[in-house]
């Protein structure tokens, strides 16, 4: 039983210059206790998809097609007031830069308490206890002292822990994490990941993890969707997609980064470049948007966008090379 279902989601951006499709026909669902990774370069629409799920799209961007359902209830046509009750309660989000997403003029304890006041009927005393418990639950030892600290007094890792405590305050069904460790050091990243894994095991929260790092995907996620220029390129379980990537873009994303190898027999293979850059969305024509950068590009790739098709059970790819088989 999936907790969150995204069905044929399209997000359009309208401006004086015209209109652009930022997210084009994206579908996926996610089970409790599982982690789904959304992967792609910047500008591929992964953050827009996340913001659409929270109904927090920036001005000018709107959901034009598709349905998002949380435990069977549609979020897409919910009035804003009811959506506010869902945000921070059954669905919450953490961001890349925990400094800018915390309010600098309130203590972190106060900010966690605010979430509880909004979404629960707890009294003052209960809230105070719950705040302390939450701060302890994200691995901060001196909770009493830390709760009265202001964001700038804490390190980046600490702040991200506080963001996680805030996001988990009302035991959400879904946690959306947008590049949660990109701004952090590797050892702190390892701490945050082990914290997220522990919390997930305890609360069965479904996690949507937005990242560009295949290492993070391998470490944290069960399923993966790869997006390119707003469209779905590939979808499947992390194990299959990373070991047998079907889309040339997925393969490119894996091979373009020098991955750390330990041991005495290290391969000295060069990293392969994906040439060029993501095309501007307004210039994309009818064909596959990756065709201009793809080594396997043929005539039909330029002519039409391939449909999503099955490579093997629960592994789909949108690439002409897999259309016949």
């Amino acid at each position: 039983m999936s907790v969150l279902k995204v069905d044929h989601l399209c997000v359009d951006y309208r401006s004086r210059a015209g209109h652009i499709r930022l997210v084009d026909d994206i579908s996926f669902d996610i089970q409790p206790n599982k982690t789904l990774a959304i992967v792609g370069e910047s500008g591929c629409g992964k953050s827009m998809t996340a913001l659409a799920m929270m109904r927090l799209l920036p001005d000018g961007a709107t959901i034009t097609k598709g349905v998002i359902t949380l435990e069977g209830d549609s979020l897409t046509d919910l009035p804003e007031a009811q959506m506010r009750d869902i945000r921070g309660a059954s669905m919450s989000m953490i961001f890349q830069e925990p400094m800018t997403s915390l309010n600098p003029v309130f203590s972190v304890g106060e900010q966690i308490a605010e979430v509880l006041r909004l979404h629960t009927d707890l009294d003052k005393q209960q809230i105070r206890e719950k705040v302390q418990a939450l701060i302890r639950s994200v691995g901060i030892s001196d909770a009493g002292q830390r709760s009265s600290a202001y964001p700038h007094e804490l390190s980046g890792g600490m702040r991200q822990r506080i963001m996680i405590a805030m996001a988990l305050a009302c035991s959400p069904k879904v946690l959306i994490a947008d590049e949660p460790t990109t701004a952090l050091d590797v050892t702190v990243q390892a701490q945050i990941f082990s914290l997220l894994r522990d919390l997930q095991a305890r609360t069965s929260t479904a996690i949507v993890l937005i990242t560009h790092d295949m290492g993070v995907v391998a470490e944290m996620a069960d399923d993966i969707i790869v997006m390119y220029a707003g469209r779905l390129a590939e979808r499947g379980s992390v194990e299959t997609v990373l070991s047998r990537p079907a889309h040339p873009y997925t393969r490119g994303l894996i091979d373009c980064v020098p991955h750390l190898q330990l041991g005495s027999n290290i391969s000295h293979k060069s990293v392969t470049e994906i040439p060029g850059v993501v095309p501007a969305l307004e210039t994309i024509g009818a064909g596959c948007p990756f065709a201009s950068r793809c080594g396997l590009s043929e005539e039909r790739c330029e002519a039409a966008m391939p449909e999503l098709s099955e490579v093997r059970p629960s592994h789909q790819v949108a690439c002409w090379n897999y259309q016949e088989t």
Binding site: V238, L242, S243
Partner: peptide, 30 residues
């Protein structure tokens, strides 16, 4: 990368996620 001597180097190396699922030879020293 084949035999890090300092415990900090070792911890740092272990904390890097590996991109090959299931085959990761090491776990992160937290």
């Amino acid at each position: 990368f084949s035999y890090p001597l300092h415990p900090y180097t070792l911890s740092l190396l272990s904390a890097v996620p590996s991109a090959s699922p299931g085959t990761k030879a090491w776990k992160a020293i937290t």
